[in-house]
Amino acid sequence: MLQQAPETEAQTLVVNGVSHRFDDYLALDNVSLSVPRGAFTVLLGLNGAGKSTLFSLITRLYDNVSGEIRILGNDVRRRPTAALQRLGVVFQSRTLDQDLTLKQNLMYHAALHGIARREAKIRCQEALERVGLADRQNEKVRNLSGGQARRVEIARSLLHRPGCLLLDEPTVGLDIGSRESVVGIVRKLVAEQDLGVLWATHLIDEIAPTDQIVVLHRGKVLFTGTVPEFLAKTGSDNVRAGFRSITGTAHGDDQ
């Protein structure tokens, strides 16, 4: 495992037997999942299921105490630099500088990845075009709507050209139009660039029939697989009903 991992790794993200404990509360219990290349993988769970904790472990905010996490074959503990270079993240909370312009925010992020100014400028332009905000690059983030700010964060997460993209409830607080546009941009990325995406959400209507699903409930993974497999396993005719039956909760989402 310490050897240079092959870059043609089929799995962009592998989480294997990861547990994490806060004091006396087991936030994650032996969690395993994987995100293949070119797959839109939905991490489905209610609030408090452990989604954010898992993201904190993958992004190395704190270390996984047990189990392993690999990003394109690079163990996040043994090869943190290589792992983080291949990982793009959109956090749940807003992380752009309100007083800086879109471009300044992106340039800052490029610097954090050691991308030289000249190359960074080209990539900022590309990334903003991809999310349809290139014409507003000199405006302050403060002037953007919630959905537009999210799109900038997606553009930002792509600057260092990661192979694996994590999004932690990226559509929380957005109106329907913005949600569709954000989901659409990410789906297009998966299709065009062979990215592996892990999309955490509690909103079942964001799941498409072709997606991979990982159901996380109270720190445990209850299911991994495709949508048809999920429906077959739970004996339901839709994901919402399946989610209810597998988790034993009265309702699938907050709406």
Partner: peptide
């Protein structure tokens, strides 16, 4: 917009870029 298969090594220049950016 393509994914880099092998990201650039973080050399001395990268460190300087990062420091100046922060």
């Amino acid at each position: 917009g393509t994914i880099a298969e092998e990201p650039d090594r973080l050399g001395f220049g990268g460190y300087v870029t990062c420091l100046l950016g922060i």
